[in-house]
Amino acid sequence: MFRYLLIALLHMIKSNRSPAAIYHILTGKKSSQTIQDLHVFQLHPYYGLLPNLTRQTFDDAINSIVDEGLMTWVNKKDYRLTDKAKDYLTINTDDYFHSLTQAIDESAKHIFTERLYLTIQTFTYRVMNERSFIPVTDDVTIQSFVKQYYHKHKQQLSGWLEACHNHLYEVLKTYPEHNRHIFLDRLSTYHHNGQSLQQLMDRYETNEPDIRLTLVLIERDLFIRSQQEQTCLSDLLPGENSNLMYPSLMTRSAKKTHQLVMRGYNIDELIQVRQLKRGTIEDHLVEICTLDDHFKLNDYVTEEKISLIEAYLSTRQTQKLGEIKRNLPATISYLDLRLVFAHYQKRLNK
């Protein structure tokens, strides 16, 4: 599964970035570059998909893809997928990635999942009249939510569990046998403690990222269904569940700069007021340009330069800024180019 995902993503970014960019997307790195990549390559659904993925695991997977002749290195950073990889993608289509067709608010999903696991644990213990158990999460905010939720439902525990059972049955039915078992073995319920990742790997003879991915895809599916329709789990969604994904993606420091940009500060004023290096402010501007639809590009780049750069972009397919820069007049700075490029991509994606 993870292997398929990686090859598919390598294919999507079309050799315009080093594979490390994929790692940053999957782990949800909050950097300007990663957030731009999301927009450029339309990879929002994958952002923060595997927050605990280690760099070592990722690199190992990439290396084995190379070893199997699916990918070759052009130089240290650039790679190319071989025809064998393209064949691989057409032959193996993975049907279970359907919950990856839309972007979700990862932090809301995290809260939802933690609440779900703790609710299942609490309700199964309480329905058997046992008070004493060690909660699956130490997070006090999750615990206090489930406590209130329990008090609301303590007369209908049986009914809630039946509904939950039926709902999980319907959802799990759509997954392969193997995935259903992994999800169920991971649950901590009455007199059954969840299995650790290592134990699941041993039992199902698979690797860690596949286990994580299996769990995450089902969790995501449950989350999305509960958002889209009223299910027995919809109550577990965090309150102000909004589609405010874009501002929340912005790094905290960039948000401060954003306030000033909206008030019309120019670059030198921003440097002065924020007491930051020019390079940092430039990164912020590109990030703001990517994420804020109301960003006024011509406050920062002259109309003349904008049309020059856009004219070039419309004739070329490349996404490599270095290459574009070399083919444009020297008066055009990297910042000009990055801003126009981000703006151009944004419109292209609309």
Partner: peptide
């Protein structure tokens, strides 16, 4: 089986 797991773990009271 996965159906047994689901039943036993989510609805323990029906087992007893």
């Amino acid at each position: 089986s996965w159906e047994e797991k689901l039943m036993r773990w989510i609805r323990p009271q029906t087992e007893a």
